[in-house]
């Protein structure tokens, strides 16, 4: 795939072309001092690029918080079913995602495809183009480099844009979808050389990235977790946990969902919506029996699922180190801190 350069000042022009091409564009928007992904209709709506993170991840592009699985209609004793056509999913561009957003789609895709193919997710993802911007700053909650990512990591991106100190931005095109997006504004791009490890452009890209030394490795965590099921650490760490779903819902890799009914008399829809392993009712049987009866067992499930079960079963880690869960947690459950303490046990 090709690399291009574009002037910082032309990025808005490119975004305008993307909007004009009829794509649904989701981008960081700041309201009342808080920045989150929102649909936008003009580059002017996009938040200033001085944010580490949006509140929510980009997963909503392919895994919305609520979506129709199919609809039904009852007539007399008969039932007829109808399902959403993939064509009804809008061509979507996620503008200025972060590399950790893009990385999240690898574990998400693993969950949705490891056995049965979830073609609703797949159809949405096929219609989603991720334009990630390299991170020039990180905060106290970021730890992408500890889980295999990085502030300038291309994995999962359709395009990775890195703003260089020269006033130009390096545009690394990673997929056909990305190429199609660059092709919308041919006049704004000039071709750039491949970003080889020893090229000046690579050095320039590196110099533009946030510095974030790794604090532990995925392997460290996994090794420790293998022996940790009965550890008191789960109760210690989760005592203050309120059992809400904030961490799961802002997470780029949490994919647990519920299936619910939306009846309207003789017709209705079946809906898939986000759910969380932190909720007590997630696993509770009708009889009242609950395989994970305490918040400590649910917190353990969250960590083991992401860092032990998923790697073992799906060859994917359920965490991109984005830190969103820690920022969103009402009681400051800090994942980096908790993982570091597990890795040091």
């Amino acid at each position: 795939m090709k690399n291009y350069q574009i002037k910082h000042s032309d990025l808005d022009g490119w975004l305008e072309k993307i909007i004009a091409a009829g794509r649904r564009v989701i981008a960081p928007v700041t309201e009342e001092g808080h920045t989150d992904f929102r649909p936008i209709h003009s580059p002017a709506e996009v938040a200033a690029d001085d944010q580490v993170q949006t509140i929510q991840s980009a997963k909503q592009a392919a895994f919305p918080k609520a979506e129709t699985l199919f609809s039904y209609r009852k007539e007399g004793t008969a039932v007829s079913l109808d399902q959403p056509a993939p064509e009804s999913y809008l061509q979507t561009v996620v503008w200025r995602a972060r590399p950790c957003d893009a990385a999240g789609f690898t574990p998400l895709s693993a969950i949705f495809n490891w056995d049965y193919k979830d073609n609703l997710y797949n159809a949405r993802l096929a219609r989603t183009t991720l334009v990630a911007f390299s991170c020039q700053q990180a905060d106290a909650y970021c730890f992408c480099t500890s889980v295999g990512g990085g502030p300038g990591e291309k994995k999962g991106c359709d395009i990775l844009v890195t703003k260089l100190p020269s006033g130009k931005a390096l545009v690394e095109v990673c997929t056909e979808k990305g190429e199609a997006l660059a092709a919308l504004a041919p006049g704004l791009f000039s071709e750039a050389n491949a970003v080889a490890d020893d090229s000046p452009l690579f050095a320039e890209k590196q110099s533009a990235l946030a510095q974030l030394p790794a604090r532990f490795s995925k392997e460290d965590i996994r090794r420790h977790l293998a022996e940790a099921f009965d550890s008191p650490v789960w109760r210690e760490q989760s005592e203050r946990c309120l059992g809400c779903g904030a961490c799961a819902f802002v997470c780029p890799t949490c994919a647990c969902f519920d299936i619910q009914e939306d009846p309207h008399g003789s017709h209705g829809r079946r809906i898939r919506c986000w759910d969380s392993c932190a909720f007590a009712l997630f696993t509770q049987h009708t009889s009242g029996h609950n395989p994970r009866p305490s918040q400590a067992t649910r917190w353990r499930q969250r960590i083991l699922h992401k860092f032990s079960y998923m790697p073992e079963r799906l060859d994917a880690t359920g965490c991109t180190g984005c830190g969103r869960c820690s920022r969103a947690c009402p009681v400051d459950m800090n994942l980096l801190e908790h993982l570091t303490s597990i890795a040091q046990k």
Binding site: I111, F112, W114, D115, Y116, D118, A255, C256, F257, D258, I259, D275, C277, F282, T283, H305
Partner: peptide
């Protein structure tokens, strides 16, 4: 819920 290894329950 899903029966197909995705919903996580």
């Amino acid at each position: 819920k899903c029966g197909i290894g995705k919903c996580g329950r």
